[in-house]
Every structure is written in C-alpha cells, then in structure tokens.
C-alpha cells in the first residue's frame, strides 16, 4: 500500500484517497458555444500516458481536499504533489 503525500495532511495510506482522473482539464468557459465534437472531447477524451502524468486526487477520508499530482503510470510512483493554486510542475 503506497503512501501518498497529501499537501495538507502529509503522507497517508492510499486507501484514504480517491482518484479524479487527468488534471488540468478545465470546464469549458462557454459550453453552449462548443460543437458536439468539442464538447464530447471535454467529456470523454483523456490522455492515456505511459509515464509521468498529471492527475487529480482527493484526500477523501481525510481533509476532503483536492490536489494534483505527477505520478508515473508505469511505476505508480508519485513524483510530486501540488495544490490546486500551484503551477503545474515540470513533468518528471
């Protein structure tokens, strides 16, 4: 069982966290102006990266706060975590 570093609580066991999919996929400014295709892209299309990947996580059974993480999808290792108000770090 991995330890995940919650930016607010520190390292906690992974069962306390829920996964939220790819990070930095913003809700469109004006959904009504999007074509069906563009809207479907927002809804359904995500990267399927092998290697470092920016993801959303929530400390669901802890502080209930969302944060982002760079995690390697091949090794499962978390490279770093960052708050929502922090810049996306370099992917490594």
């Amino acid at each position: 069982m991995q330890l995940i570093e919650c930016p607010y609580c520190g390292p906690r066991e992974e069962v306390e966290f829920h996964y939220g999919g790819q990070a930095h996929v913003s809700y469109p400014e004006d959904p009504a102006s999007l074509s069906d295709e563009k809207w479907a892209e927002y809804l359904f299309v995500r990267d399927n990266t092998r290697g470092p990947f920016a993801e959303r996580w929530v400390h669901a059974l802890g502080c209930r706060r969302w944060f982002n993480a760079i995690r390697d999808t091949a090794t499962y290792r978390f490279h770093r975590v960052y708050r929502l108000d922090e810049q996306k770090p370099a992917m490594s």
């Binding site: 939220g20 929530v58 669901a60 706060r65 929502l84």
Partner: peptide, 13 residues
Amino acid sequence: LEWMEDWLQTEWP
C-alpha cells in the same frame, strides 16, 4: 458531498 467539494474546490473556488 464529494461531488460538491470537487466543483467548489476545482472549478468554482
């Protein structure tokens, strides 16, 4: 509850 927190924290802070 988690759904509400998600939107409040990430899209509508």
